[in-house]
Every structure is written in C-alpha cells, then in structure tokens.
C-alpha cells in the first residue's frame, strides 16, 4: 500500500503508516488470523444444529411458545457470544497495539517526525487513530462473521448483536488512551499491556460494589471503593450492558458506564498529549 495512491493528508499519512507498520510487524495478520481461528471454532461448534439442539435440550413442543423460546434461546446465545468476542477482541487488541506507540518514539525516528510542520498533538492523534482503525477493522470482521454464521445457521438475525461492534471498539478506544499514555511516558510496550489488562481486571472487581460495600466496615472505605469504581473505565459494566441490550433487557444500564469511561479516556489521552508535547527527544 502506497500513500501516493490517495490524496492523503498528513493525518491520513500517519494513519496509513500505522497500518503499514502493523502489517509489517505481523500484528495485523496476527489479529485477523486469531479472529479467523475463533470464527472457525464457531463454525465447527455450530455444525451441531443449534435450533434442533435447543428443541431437544429445552423439551419444547410445537406450539406458538416454541418460536418465542427459540428466539429467546438464540438471543441468549447471541448475548453470550458477544461477551466472548468482547473479551477476546479487547484483550487481543490491547496486546497488538501496545508496541505501536513506543516504536514511533525511537530516537532517530521521532526527531524526523517532529521536524515536520505538524503539531505534536496531531502526530500522537494520528498514531492513536491509526491504531484504533486497525482494531476497528478486526472487530467488524470478527463480529460480522460470527453474526453471519449464527444468522445463516439459525435463520434468526438479531441486529442488536451488532452492538458488540461499537461497544467493543469504544472500550478499546478507552484502553488505548491508557496504552498511549504509558507508551509516551515509559516507551515500554510491556508496561502498557500490564496496566491496560490490570485496568480490565480491576474494573471487574470494582463493579462488584453492590456485594462488596456491604462487607466494608467503614464509611470511608466504602466511599473509596465507589470513588475508584467511578474513576476507572467500566470494562465489565459495558460488557454486561451489551449483553442486556442484546437481550432487550430494559434494565440495561449503559449510559453511566459509557460517559464515565469516555471521560476517563478523554482525560488520559489529554494527559498523554500534554506529556508528549513537553517531552524532549
């Protein structure tokens, strides 16, 4: 892929360069290869006739209720599959993208980039968007493929399953802000992965606040737990909300996790830009 084929702006050039680097480092193919593997596993699993299997398993008789229950069963399957794809896709994406920020900060490479008539903000955002685009393409490929497979097999097309695409891309975009910040500060891909994955786990633990705060004895510890809960991106909550949305659950709570995670991402990315603008190379 050459940039000269298109009328690429400087930002476009930076995004395209991230693609080229991801391809050259086998990250692009690695992501798509592993996604294809998961798709193949789904194909294999669904060779068992899901609809027939469901009928057998649930002992459903041929009544009007049967259609509703099969729909319900497939939707439940869709929701669980979306969770698998959400976790799988996010983890892989974090691993794949961690090295793409430190690589651009290598001495001899960054000084030439900074000598160009670009602001540092644009330079970093170009890299961020390039990274996000690579992962977004992979998410679209993975989730659409699985949706097609389930749809063809069950003849039940649940468009809400496709909500997994924007939600997975969104949560990755938030975690990528952390990867960029750590990359800009430490130039360490390994540390970026460690912290992003740790945030995913911490988010899961903090999300159990309803059970945990009851066990905490002091008010300040309960408030501290809740403060951390609101501070950290809601990887777990958004996964749960996605599952509920696919199940048409009216209790789905996605607005608060969405805006608090977005706020976290904006603050972290702004900090990364600020650090990057002040750094000497």
């Amino acid at each position: 892929m050459e940039l000269s084929t298109g009328r690429a702006s400087a930002l476009g050039a930076l995004i395209a360069d991230t693609f080229l680097e991801a391809r050259a480092r086998w990250l692009f193919w690695g992501l798509f290869g592993l996604s294809t593997l998961l798709i193949c596993i789904f194909l294999f699993v669904l060779k068992i006739d899901v609809v027939a299997g469901a009928i057998t398993l649930m002992g459903i008789q041929s009544t009007t209720k049967q259609v509703f229950d099969i729909q319900r069963f497939v939707n439940t399957s869709y929701s669980w599959v979306s969770i698998v794809l959400y976790i799988w896709g996010t983890l892989l994406a974090v691993f794949a993208s961690a090295g793409l920020v430190p690589s651009v900060l290598e001495a001899g490479r960054i000084s030439l980039l900074l000598s160009k008539p670009l602001t540092r903000t644009r330079l970093l955002l170009g890299r961020y968007l390039g990274n996000l685009s690579v992962v977004a393409l992979n998410h679209i490929y993975l989730i659409c493929s699985v949706w097609l497979i389930i749809g063809v097999k069950t003849k039940i097309w649940e468009p809400r399953f496709l909500l997994a695409i924007p939600i997975s891309i969104f949560i990755f975009a938030v975690l990528l802000c952390v990867v960029v910040l750590i990359g800009v500060i430490s130039e360490s891909a390994a540390l970026s992965v460690m912290i992003a994955v740790a945030l995913m786990l911490i988010s899961t633990i903090l999300a159990q606040y309803e059970n945990v705060v009851k066990l905490l004895s002091s008010e300040w510890s309960r408030q501290l737990w809740m403060a951390f809960y609101w501070l950290i991106p809601k990887v777990y909550d958004l996964g749960v909300a996605m599952k509920q949305l696919i199940l048409y659950d009216r209790q789905a709570n996605w607005i608060a996790p969405l805006w608090t995670s977005a706020a976290f991402g904006i603050v972290v990315l702004s900090t990364a830009v600020m650090v990057f603008r002040r750094r000497d190379f």
Binding site: L3, S4, T5, S9, G12, P117
Partner: peptide, 14 residues
C-alpha cells in the same frame, strides 16, 4: 513509500 510518507507529512499534495 518512505519518500511518500515524509513528503506527505511535509504537506506535499499526492
């Protein structure tokens, strides 16, 4: 590709 990339960053049209 390298010349293309850096020329694009320098603001040269495609």
């Amino acid at each position: 590709g390298m010349l293309d990339f850096y020329a694009a960053l320098s603001g040269l049209a495609a």
